[in-house]
Structures are given as C-alpha cells and as structure tokens.
Design a protein around this nucleic acid. Structure first.
Lengths: 224, 224
DNA sequence: GTCTATATGTAGATAGAC
DNA sequence: GTCTATCTACATATAGAC
C-alpha cells in the first residue's frame, strides 16, 4: 500500500488538533533528517527522537518508512506546483511579454522565496528534492510530483522557440532547475570558494541565478 | 584513522597482482553501490556480493566503511584534477585567447569525456560526486578533493573579469559544475520531458552544456 | 491516538584458521 | 591475503495495554 492514512480507510472523525500537530512534528522531523542523511541514514528512531514522540507514533502517522518518505516529498509538491502555475497564469494575464526569462522566474523563484521567508523547513525540502532528483531509486516520485508541471513550462518555452527541438529545451530546463537547487545546497561552497565569510545572501544570489539561466537558455534555444 | 592501508603501517612487499585486482573489484563495486544507494543504503555485504568476495575482504582492503567511502571518492579525484589542470596549461600555452568559455571547457569536459569513453565506472563516479556535493555530511571530502582545483579556475576567471566580485564568479562556477553533474544524473529526466525515446546523446548534449554555461557566465560576470 | 514491549532481521566489525 | 564464524548493536515493524 503506497499511501498510508491512519486508522482504517473510512475515517470516522476529523483528527484532533493535537493529532495534527503531532503528525506535523513527525513530518517536519522526517523532512529534515531525510534531507540531511538520506533515506537509510535517517532511522525511524532518529525521527521519533527529533519529533519528541515514541517510535510507534511515527509508524502510526507515516505508515512504513517508504510510505513516510513518499508522503514527506508529496506534502509540499502540490503547494509548490500551484505557486508556479499561478505565477505563470498571472504573467500571461498581465499583458507583459512572455519571455524565457519570465518563464524561468515562474519556475525558479517560488521555491527560493519560500526558503527565504519560511526558513529551515523549505530549505530542507530543497535538499530533499535535490536528493530525490539525483537518486535513481526515487525517479518515480520525481516523475509523479514534478514532471507534469515541468512539461507545462517546457510547452510554454516551445511556443517562444518553435524552431528549437524539445530535447534542447528540456536540457536547458534541467540545467536551470539544478542550478537553483545547487544555489541552496551549495552556499557553503560558494562562500568557501570566494573567501566570503559573511552570511549568504540568497536574495542577491537569486538575481544572479536568473541572469545565468536566462542567458544560458537563450544561447541554447535561439535559432542558429 | 582516516586513511586505511592493508596490513601494518610499514608494508614489507608490494601487493600481488591478484590482490590489486581484488582491491580494484571491491572499489569498483563500492563506487557503483554508493552512487546508486548512498552511504547507508549500500551495505558492506552488498558490496562484497557485487565484487564476488567474502565480506571480510572488503574490510581488509577498505578499512572501516567510512574509510572505504573516503578512499573511493579520493581514488579518481587526483586523476580528474590533473586532467583539468593539464587542459588549462595546454590552453594557456596554445596562444589561443583565454576566454570564460575556454576555461569552462577545461573544467567541465574532462569528466564528461571519461564518462563517454570509459562508461559505467566514471558515470557512477559522477553520481557519487553529485551526492557528495549535496550532502552536508561529506563537505570535508568535497573541500579536500575539489576545492583547490576549483579555486585555481576561479582565479583564472578573475583575471578575465577583474572588476567582478569573487562571489559572483564562484556562484556561476558552482552553477556550471552542477549543470554538468545534472547532465549525467538526469538524462532520464531530459528524455522523459522531451518524449525522446532514443538513447541519450551525451556528446551532443555537452555542446549545449558549454553554450549554456558560457552564456550564463558571461551574463553574470560582465561589468554592468 | 498514544505508548511499552518485543519479535525478527540485518548491519558493521573482527578473531582466528588457513 | 583470504575466508568462516560470530559478537554486538541497532534497524523496522507490530501486538496489545491504556
């Protein structure tokens, strides 16, 4: 059973407030530990300890370890897709020209803004996505959670560059997303390589990200 | 003890040919399994089975699991750095203009060419590096194995863009490396998103990679 | 919904024969 | 250098009291 829900299939009552809080604490702890230590590196005991609940409660709210992992990834995927697609709709109804740069902003900025606003949970989620994307064992989650929206954005790009083949478009889309993820997972490296001891300025760097990807994409996609 | 070597600290004889082959089989198996399943996901028993040796031999040649992991990452890091730096030296003595694009080729192409020539082992190594770069637990390996060479390339870029601050240079360097890694770890995704059922053409895609990164870098680094 | 207790498997590491 | 056998610890999962 891939999707676990507590108790039986037909739930009788809405869960109590306390139960919801407990479940949230468990999912938040799982999100952080999976992101830090990968799937096998984070034990259910570690997760329970971080959430300050007994181990059995983790299984109760999350089901098997595998189901818990899936649920944790899926938890924010929906919200993220909605934010991206809404931004795209807003762009198209705004009357502004629909350029590759504007589309990139719709794809890349929502997650970055969540990291900047909400702090550690969404940063952990970036790490988790980076992990899921790179690990062949989780390709099915990746496909289910992110490919539909990605396909939508790639279609938009095809309209702007109708002569360009889809593989080139998909390639530069993947480059852009990976650059966004690395901006969050590798700030430590950027600081080390630039001898910059000050706290990383994500907001400032996201301007660089958009410049980099927009120029890169334009170079790859424009008719030669 | 971080670095393990078989037998005592003062080795008496060179290892036999068979012993070297055994050790290579173990390291190759470890490289593939660590790349596929991460550190905790690959057990010493799995590695031993893949290398077709008894478990105790893995400990004998690799030391503790942690030491084995370090050794597997370090094994190819040296060769890779040498290839990159040699290519840079060749460029500078060739009389050709030293551009950001040329420097990027020195950084990104050696590993890609190894993947194309040598096949699965170097592809596994790409995955391993992607994993090590993203996982906070392995930052020290990353720093030791790759930062010195990275710093060298960033210095070269500073010479071309003397007005640009180092953080911007380091940022676009990190974007470029992550795009290279994602080209190898996410071919499956590129194929899925472009409905391209044919076998991935890494060589063709690396032209796109260089175009993307060179244009992106130029856009971020040129004086405004 | 929450928690204690436990069943069952498999992990990393090493001792010691060859 | 190689291999068998085993020690000890910790993993996931669940049964059953509250």
């Amino acid at each position: 059973m891939r999707h676990h829900s507590p108790s039986t299939t037909n739930r009788q009552r809405a869960p109590s407030k306390r139960a919801v809080q407990t479940k949230t604490r468990i999912f938040d702890a799982a999100e952080q530990l999976f992101a830090e230590r990968n799937f096998e590196g984070a034990s259910l005991r570690d997760i329970a300890a971080k959430a300050d609940v007994p181990v059995a409660l983790v299984s109760f709210h999350g089901g098997s370890k595998n189901a818990l992992f899936h649920a944790v990834v899926e938890r924010r995927a929906d919200a993220l897709s909605k934010l991206r697609l809404k931004r795209l709709t807003d762009l198209k109804t705004s009357g502004k020209p629909v350029t590759a740069r504007n589309i990139l902003e719709c794809t890349l900025l929502p997650h970055l803004e969540k990291v900047i606003e909400d702090g550690p949970q969404w940063l952990a989620y970036v790490r988790l996505i980076a992990m899921v994307s790179a690990d062949p064992r989780w390709h099915d989650i990746s496909k289910a959670c992110f490919d539909p929206t990605a396909a939508h954005f790639i279609d938009e790009l095809s309209k702007i560059y109708p002569e360009t083949d889809k593989t080139a478009i998909a390639t530069s889309y993947v480059f852009s997303v990976s650059a966004m993820l690395s901006l969050c997972t590798s700030t430590w490296r950027i600081s080390a390589l630039s001898n910059d001891t000050s706290k990383a300025d994500l907001a400032g760097m996201s301007a660089n990200l958009i410049d980099f990807c927009a120029a890169g994409m334009h170079s790859v996609l424009r008719p030669k």
